[in-house]
């Protein structure tokens, strides 16, 4: 006798469960007054160097901690801790190419003084695809694009540039050696995300860090006032 088949309608987004967890986490952090900033980019764009400079510019004004997400190793967490002195923990994704809201929540629980913090920066896995699809529970996201990667990245990885509110163009000190066109890049970003702001920096030469720090401070302040 042949098995009968029954159909069960689901009609639900694959990301629905993660989005629910992310919304719950956002609400919990709002109650605590902790701003979670998600930082995304490709590997080697200078995320860690940028964060070190950003944290050093902000750490006297607000209380900060960092969560470094990587597939393996703890080099980033150690670098940030050594160069900034703020609390820094390493999250391992166990082979996965992104962090989801549940992993982020577990990471936050690993911070010793979460309630006292103003800002937690999450350095997501270096990858231009997957991290954009999984809501981490962050208030907002910024994406770093470095000059050697090319000005066409927003065209190739549209979602990454759609889900962020700021694009940081890093390594502008090497512009003379590359065919990177800043105006063209900004145009490409606007095409994908008309509301995105753009800040140009060189983390290595410490250029533009003040602008980036002001942007982050403004985000945290506005969010705290509107809660």
């Amino acid at each position: 006798m042949e098995d009968k088949v029954k159909i069960i309608e689901i009609k639900k987004s694959v990301f629905a469960a993660n989005e629910k967890t992310a919304d719950d986490l956002r609400e919990e952090l709002k109650q605590k007054g902790v701003f979670l900033l998600n930082v995304m980019s490709s590997p080697g764009s200078g995320k860690t160097t940028t964060l070190v400079e950003l944290i050093n510019a902000l750490k006297d004004k607000i209380k900060i901690a960092v969560m470094e997400a990587d597939i393996d190793s703890d080099v980033d967490a150690l670098t940030v801790a050594k160069k900034t002195g703020v609390q820094s923990i390493q999250l391992h994704t166990g082979g996965m190419c992104h962090l989801d809201a549940e992993m982020t929540s577990q990471g936050l629980n690993g911070l010793s003084n979460l309630d006292d913090l103003d800002l937690v920066i999450l350095e997501n896995v270096g990858n231009l695809v997957c991290p954009a699809e999984f809501d981490t529970g962050a208030v907002t996201s910024l994406t770093i694009l470095s000059v050697p990667e090319g000005d066409d990245k927003p065209l190739k990885y549209p979602l990454m540039y759609q889900v962020c509110s700021l694009v940081v163009i890093n390594k502008i000190d090497v512009l003379p050696y590359f065919t990177f066109d800043v105006a063209k890049c900004k145009e490409n970003i606007k095409m994908r995300n008309p509301n995105a702001e753009v800040i140009e920096i060189s983390a290595l030469k410490k250029e533009g860090i003040d602008k980036l720090a002001d942007w982050v401070l403004k985000q945290v302040k506005n969010w705290k006032e509107n809660k």
């Binding site: 098995d3 009968k4 088949v5 029954k6 159909i7 069960i8 309608e9 689901i10 009609k11 639900k12 987004s13 694959v14 990301f15 699809e133 606007k190 095409m191 994908r192 995300n193 008309p194």
Partner: peptide
Amino acid sequence: RICPYCQSKNTYLVTGNEVSIKHIEVKD
């Protein structure tokens, strides 16, 4: 994101971003 008729940026995606489970079939 830019309208091909009037070049406006005031547009939004209606369909195309779905990653959904429509239904499943199970042994009855």
